[in-house]
Design a protein around this nucleic acid. Structure first.
Lengths: 352, 352
DNA sequence: CTGTTAGCGCTTTCAC
DNA sequence: GTGAAAGCGCTAACAG
């Protein structure tokens, strides 16, 4: 395994100094006689020179790499976000370290530490850790952070919020306007701000339209994710639907806290011979890519995942590049995606 | 923005040399008096020392990071693989650069170059580029490569193969054994070895069971992915199904080259009022996570994505760590996942 | 056991 | 315009 040529080798061959070689090969705008410039380029090509960025990095203290920490890339919501992040990073000359925390605070902490050791200057994080101390300490050091999904109060960082409450409200209101009054809620445990907000939105809408809240229609999972657990949400949807169907009075619609769980709901309804949307309507939340692929296509609330990733990354890199100095907080807005899993009770009554 | 403490600072404070500090802080097994060792550790903690891996890297020429190049993380098949890769990498002290090539040879090439510049010593690649020169050149240099999914003939690297032909054969045979004779094929264009193999498996099975090949039942997309295109496969499934249904004689079963496309097929069948599996059975390929979530759950051929990622990464790191010297080729085996999208014609005939 | 020292490959003063 | 030289933070001979 031969050593790779360095600027020193090139300097020797081109009869010049490493300084000059560096100047032309690193695209510096420093003046170099064009003749010499060409000669250096020629030699570099001849020896098949590939710059060693580690050298530059050590000198300039600028790694041109960022880190992304998410629960699991296997979740399509996060994979879209990561795609958005990576597309922007690449186009701006950065690389990204992908880190799956598996919802483990220990893993998250380990990543935080090792990424920092590797001189990552920026981080985009959906944090799961309840302990913000480490994150805070790193921010003090030299690290720019953009938080999304699970935003972090009191952290000195930019944040991309999503109006979960409004999303929950809009979804519920949508069902109400379609003539539904008995609207169930199926949700993952209320252990995170985002979920609590969606829940609040649901309650707010019911109140606002003077619909009495029926607790038997509210099914909230008691068991949280196990770390490393897969397809938890789908199974959650199945389980909670079973519970819901035990109620004496069935709802005409159910609002589900996310699309994956909604898949479980629809799956179980189907298994029990209940037609969606004819007998029970289903409303999702997230609008992951698969929502339009299932039967019937899922009516849901759009969370702009890919765009969110792009936004987060542009924000971070603007900070790293010094284009932005202050932190910014952005609140993204929900939007209803109208498909076929919700029945319009009003118009269907007219028909019958 | 204060400069971070270095081993030099620690050496000064602990009244010793950088060499000794390095020895204890980098967990070298070099003997250091335990008293001094403790003192150094204490000082390090006091000043909140975080090692700068770039320094180490430049010296040791070992970056402890690998690169992964895939078409798009948004495809659940790849996201499972990446999860497997990353889980292993982390557990063995490595980080991973995630690169989405969007099926663009230019992007792939750009990544190859920049990853190498960043001193990545290992790469796991699902290559799209028809030009293996660059990849080959890098292998000559100092780079270990593990190829999967799209394996690369004549490249000096380890490869993880999957027996696509056998998978195609097994799927078709499965349908035949369930009593199907008119078995359609819906496939993405035959522009890659993997797809051609699946196609061959289909043909082989039909031949083997003396079933005449009916060209009108074979629907192969003519249009290839556009770079950056999303949900191409789903739409492909819809389109090809429409074509298929124009045939005079309908098949009793259709074998689809991958699950995503199968979702499109089922979607369109449903739209046209054709029941799956009662009227037409559907057989997928890949077994992505969502296959079990749709209605009816998809019978399909399992490609062990997550395990494949783990395997690929362990292989690569074994090479990097010098545990393996020669290249290895591994052939993974398909397995049928029995769910509900295929009708057993034999037993259903008995019933009627 | 411990410290001195020479770099790893690169950029960047500073002097010419 | 160009080059000599220092040094980014770390490790690893080597000498003691």
């Amino acid at each position: 395994m031969k050593k790779h040529p360095t600027i020193y080798d090139i300097a020797k061959k081109a009869d010049t100094s490493t300084a000059t070689v560096s100047r032309v090969l690193s695209n510096s705008d420093y003046p170099v006689r064009s003749e010499l410039r060409e000669k250096i380029k020629k030699v570099a090509k001849e020896v098949n020179y590939i710059p060693n960025m580690i050298g530059r990095q050590l000198k300039t203290n600028n790694s041109m790499t960022i880190g992304v920490i998410i629960p699991s890339i296997t979740n399509p919501f996060y994979s879209s976000i990561v795609l958005g992040i990576e597309d922007i990073a690449r186009s701006r000359g950065y690389h990204v370290f992908l880190c799956n925390s598996h919802r483990s605070p220990q893993l998250e902490e380990e990543y935080l530490k090792t990424l920092f050791e590797k001189q990552v200057k920026g981080l985009i994080v959906s944090s799961i850790s309840p302990d913000k101390n480490l994150l805070g300490a790193l921010v003090q050091k030299d690290l720019n952070i953009v938080a999304f999904d699970q935003t972090i109060e009191g952290l000195n960082s930019s944040q991309i919020h999503f109006d979960y409450r409004k999303g929950g409200y809009m979804a519920t209101e949508y069902l109400i306007k379609k003539g539904h009054r008995k609207i169930a809620l199926i949700s993952s445990p209320l252990t995170r701000p985002s979920r609590i907000s969606v829940y609040k939105g649901y309650l707010n809408a019911l109140e606002n339209y003077n619909i009495e809240i029926d607790k038997s229609l509210i099914q909230i999972a008691s068991r949280e994710y196990e770390e490393f657990e897969r397809s938890y949400e789908f199974r959650n949807g199945i389980e909670l639907t079973r519970n819901l169907l035990k109620c004496s009075e069935l709802p005409t619609a159910v609002f589900v806290c996310n699309d994956m769980t909604a898949f479980g709901v629809m799956n179980e309804l189907n298994k029990q011979g209940i037609n969606v949307p004819e007998q029970i309507s289903v409303m999702g939340f997230d609008n992951i890519e698969f929502s339009e692929m299932i039967t019937p296509p899922l009516t849901t609330v759009q969370q702009p995942d890919y765009e969110m990733g792009k936004l987060a990354c542009n924000l971070l890199l603007d900070q790293l590049d010094g284009k932005i100095v202050e932190n910014v907080d952005i609140m993204l807005q929900p939007r209803i995606v109208n498909r076929s899993s919700v029945l319009d009770l009003e118009s269907s009554l007219l028909k019958n």
